[in-house]
Design a protein around this nucleic acid. Structure first.
Lengths: 201, 201
DNA sequence: GTCTATATTCGGATAGAC
DNA sequence: GTCTATCCGAATATAGAC
């Protein structure tokens, strides 16, 4: 019933989750100790275990904060006039990712790496992934019709396939930003821009 | 001096590394305990510590077995006649990756995730990555000249940029094979095949 | 709800026999 | 070189006061 208390509680959980994320990004999920997280949060063991009953739960909920970060600018982009080209959409998405995740971009890769060995994360990833792919598919179908002039049926077939490719291109962008210090975002994005649209008819 | 002993030693190290890799793939680098690896290898603690002086060293050497797996079919592909199209090369590379890494494909993603928090892995990845990008760049430059008919100078500029894009596409392939159970390799590769070559002139 | 202090488990590494 | 048994440090989670 005390509304303030609920808000406080949510804020505290968020505060703890964010501190945990900083530790995870710095040291990795398992290397980060509860002691690290306790220090980073400025709280104490008791305070944290009052909100999360185990480290595992803390990991899961922190991760879901990252994954749920709605970098789904795709939704907004679908309504833009004139319609965005795919390359512009890719740029929008990676900018959104960088802006919203910030230093947590490497964390996203860590999460991907954990997916095969952590069913809970696997489920989250699968859910988020298929939602994004769906958005991409719908956007591309519209683009192939309105921007390129393909008949609707053909546009949808192509969109279905190309949606996974564009997702892959974005994953490649993330991967290379994380792996290579000298990765040049602009060069990559320009190469994307040079991908030609499917031939009409 | 005893030649047999050296070979035996190398074989044993390989045996241990492979057992470790199976454990790592199953549970992750840090979740896998030495006890797991000991059991998986069929040896004993003493036997293992006779060959590797710490778990960290074991991780690094096992990882280098994965990274050094020469999936550099690019080198061979550059000599193929008639020259392979980029999409065919991508297919060749991902097939090579799947064949040589097998169940260790998820492990590759784990490694990528560890790169930002493990400088040693970071160095390895950077070295391997730039070598692969170099091969790709050289191949694409040749292809744009011989297969597409671009002038050499323009071909090399385009190749420089597109090399990172194609690497990204392969990384996207790996990522999605690992993340999504229902990932359709063929659909992805066909979408790659539909990428049009740069317009002549 | 939060703090301090601590119990308990677990995992990496070693000692010493063979 | 390898095995068994074991030590020691670290890290998670809890107990109990405030």
């Amino acid at each position: 019933m005390p509304k303030v208390t609920d808000e406080h509680r949510a804020a505290r959980r968020h505060q703890i989750a964010q501190a945990a994320l900083r530790c995870f990004a710095r040291s990795g999920f398992q290397q980060a100790s509860m002691a690290d997280i306790i220090a980073e949060s400025g709280l104490s063991a008791g305070a944290i275990y009052g909100h999360y009953k185990s480290k595992e739960e803390l990991v899961e909920l922190a991760v879901s904060e990252v994954l749920d970060a709605r970098f789904l600018d795709v939704a907004a982009a679908r309504r833009a006039e004139p319609m965005l080209e795919p390359a512009a959409l890719v740029r929008l998405l990676v900018d959104g990712l960088s802006a919203q995740l910030g230093d947590n971009l490497p964390l996203l890769m860590q999460i991907w790496g954990q997916v095969p060995i952590n069913p809970r994360l696997g489920d989250m990833a699968e859910r988020v992934g298929s939602r994004i792919r769906g958005f991409f598919r719908d956007y591309l179908a519209d683009w192939y019709v309105e921007g390129v002039g393909l008949p609707r049926a053909e546009a949808e077939t192509r969109a279905q396939a190309d949606a996974t490719l564009y997702m892959g291109i974005i994953q490649g962008f993330v991967t290379q930003s994380v792996l290579f210090r000298d990765f040049d975002r602009e060069v990559y994005l320009e190469a994307v821009a040079h991908i030609a649209p499917p031939a009409r008819g």
